[in-house]
Amino acid sequence: MRVSPLILSLPGLVSAQTGKSVWKKRLTGADLDTFQRWSVAGTDLGIPYVLENGAIGFLFGDTFNTQWPEEPNNDWRAPVMLRSAINPGDANGIVFDSAAGVGGNGNAPEIMHNGHRGDDGFGTYEISVIPNDGIGFPETGDQIVSYMSIKDWTAPWATNYAGLAISTDGNTFTRLDVKWPNDDANSDPFQMWTMQRDGDWVYIFSVRSGRQQGPMMLQRAPWDQMVNQSAYQGWGWDGNNWGWGRPCTPILQGNFGEPSVRKLSDGTWGMSYLNLDTKNIVTRTAAGPDQAWSDETVQVYWNQEPFLYGGFIHPWSTANASELYLMVSKWAHDPTTGASTAYHVSQYVGSL
């Protein structure tokens, strides 16, 4: 079983700290229709991306039909996708209307092959498959999902590689032999991805697996050549200038959780991630993917709501007040027994 992302404490924090984002609603759980309709009870991540038809797909990680991952007969699945065409700014917040791979109600299946402590389909042992991000292409009707093949959940958890999977029907994805292998030191900075299309290019920001200290890198690829690794261009510094088509140079250094980058409707680029040094969910902004990023703004403080991680930006967010919509996971444990006390995804609302 995977390890808790954050079993730790931060003594001495000021309880009055409040970030710019506030809790809106819990989106998954054994008491909600995600369980009743699609057997999605305990789950995490909920990474939102624009589908080829303009609706939003939400990618979930290790998913169970039980409230907690450690319960027996839990029907472990990953990744799973729920969908919604509801504006997250509506009074009721995000409401899911369907699940990939099932018509109407029914057990939401894995959208791609998962080794589940077995063969990844390419001859490599993997524990699980965790999604990074997705992107839809209205020109072709296809979707591409970036994922991680998990090698070891021992913190900092390690991947075999980051890979791509493609779907032509929006329901089932085929894992491609297009991979960015991790190294033996678990230090490759191209493992946890976030992707954003802008015109003819898809911009990819990536960091190390396992939520650990290291660099953030930037690449881009033509939208119609994402499965062609030779078409990828790095953003790099040659000693005098920054430019494309160079070996990647770190654009940021930090202790990064999963990054999330989206271009908002006014042209602002927003970035969100868990800062593992402060344990806060933070955002930055920039005028473009290859422009300077602002200092961090705290969206949710650790002491405001402990054991949060993620912070994935909904694509329909704007730079207006109270129109930043974040998908935020919580996995908490009883400090005495270690048993799970929370494993779900919530919607938060804030401002960049």
Results as ranks from 00 to 15, higher is better:
246 R>A: 10
270 G>R: 08
107 N>K: 14
186 N>W: 11
161 Y>R: 11
141 G>F: 02
310 G>N: 02
345 V>Y: 09
102 V>L: 00
190 F>K: 14
335 P>Y: 13
297 T>L: 14
283 T>S: 15
188 D>P: 01
275 N>Y: 09
335 P>Q: 11
106 G>M: 10
281 I>Q: 03
183 D>N: 15
200 D>Q: 15
58 F>S: 10
106 G>A: 05
62 D>H: 06
179 K>M: 12
258 E>Q: 14
217 M>D: 01
71 E>M: 12
137 F>Q: 00
147 Y>T: 03
352 L>S: 00
332 A>I: 12
243 G>P: 08
206 S>R: 05
279 K>W: 12
243 G>D: 08
238 D>C: 06
198 D>W: 00
106 G>E: 04
248 C>W: 05
284 R>G: 08
208 R>T: 06
116 H>L: 15
145 V>Y: 02
14 V>Y: 12
154 T>Y: 10
83 R>V: 08
202 V>H: 05
263 K>P: 04
32 L>P: 07
38 W>M: 08
348 Y>W: 15
227 V>Y: 07
237 W>C: 05
172 T>H: 15
155 A>E: 12
109 P>S: 02
202 V>G: 09
202 V>L: 04
134 G>M: 08
56 I>E: 01
266 D>V: 12
188 D>R: 10
344 H>S: 15
262 R>L: 03
73 N>Y: 11
5 P>D: 04
